[in-house]
């Protein structure tokens, strides 16, 4: 006997009870060793004075690392603000452009398949390649972006995009938006194509306009996908630092540093593992709270496990 999802519901014999664990054991064991155990160690480390350069000077300091983050670190207010900008501007525009792209791709046209394979490409690109690509385009002296803007008469002098503390972060965000749009577009296109056509026909007969149809039918239908993708991408963008590493290295003067990239700087620049671990634990707590609130707030029920 099987239920509609295809899961066996017959009574399972004693031995086969352990079968799923047997099949899952390679991944579970390696995850316990390489994720579970390190996670526990890093939580402990967040409460230790742990400098890699002074291995004989490791001791418990309670909330000392957390105090260091919030009280003693002068860059922190700016870095927190940067993190908010980084996450919300990147994800916001990725979402917006991805949705628009999916909507324009919904109806078939000649050459749609080729068009899709081109515009979805950045999904598979590495932050490294895209990072150097944008770094070169936005180069202050030889960059093509400055050239075009000057030719168009928008600017009169060359802008040092990545060298200025006002523009560095936003320039990295532009690269981040570029690389992230295809993910949203792919997901929304699939969701849009799963909407039954007769619903639209009914709406047309009832005299619904395009705008009304979008808000009354299309949007509610793809809502579960919207929620999943927004949640996944927010977490992903929050934790992603490679684009920053390649394009600015967090500079100039920490102006393009986010909490996560600053954690990297603390761990592998100043080698203060304790403080970096404390930051990581905070990031994790924030992400979990965010996920919980987000899922509750959007009344997320059954739109997949991921």
């Amino acid at each position: 006997m099987t239920n509609k999802k295809g899961i066996r519901t017959e009574t399972i014999s004693k031995l086969s009870q352990y079968e799923p664990y047997f099949f899952l054991s390679p991944v579970l064991i390696s995850m316990l060793i390489m994720m579970g155990y390190p996670l526990i160690r890093s939580i402990i480390m967040a409460f230790l004075n742990y400098q890699l350069t002074r291995p004989n000077d490791i001791y418990f300091i309670g909330f000392g690392n957390f105090m260091k983050i919030f009280m003693e670190d002068a860059h922190m207010p700016m870095i927190l603000l940067n993190t908010l900008k980084w996450v919300f501007i990147s994800v916001g525009f990725q979402f917006l452009f991805g949705l628009i792209l999916a909507l324009t791709l919904k109806k078939p046209f000649k050459g749609r398949n080729i068009y899709q394979s081109i515009v979805f490409l950045p999904w598979a690109f590495s932050s490294f390649a895209v990072g150097i690509m944008f770094r070169w385009c936005f180069n202050g002296e030889y960059g093509v972006v400055n050239y075009i803007l000057m030719k168009a008469g928008i600017i009169t002098e060359k802008i040092s995009w990545l060298g200025s503390s006002e523009l560095a972060l936003i320039t990295v965000i532009i690269a981040m938006i570029w690389i992230g749009v295809p993910f949203f577009a792919i997901m929304y296109l699939a969701a849009l194509q799963s909407i039954p056509l007769d619903i639209y026909e009914a709406a047309t007969i009832d005299g619904c306009g395009r705008i009304k149809t979008f808000f009354k039918i299309t949007l509610p239908y793809i809502m579960p996908t919207v929620i999943t993708t927004l949640l996944l991408r927010t977490i992903w963008v929050f934790n992603s630092i490679e684009m920053i590493m390649i394009m600015t290295g967090g500079g100039p003067a920490y102006s393009s540093e986010t909490v996560t990239s600053y954690m990297y700087t603390k761990a592998y620049g100043t080698q203060d593992f304790g403080m970096a671990a404390a930051m990581g634990v905070l990031v994790m707590i924030v992400l979990m709270l965010y996920s919980g609130l987000f899922l509750r707030g959007t009344r997320y029920e059954e739109s997949g496990d991921f």
């Binding site: 995850m31 390489m34 994720m35 996670l39 996944l232 593992f273 970096a276 634990v281 992400l287």
Partner: peptide, 16 residues
Amino acid sequence: SQMIPAVLLTIPIYII
């Protein structure tokens, strides 16, 4: 596991 920042994990893994 998808919520754990990769950088956080690298710190203890580096020592291990």
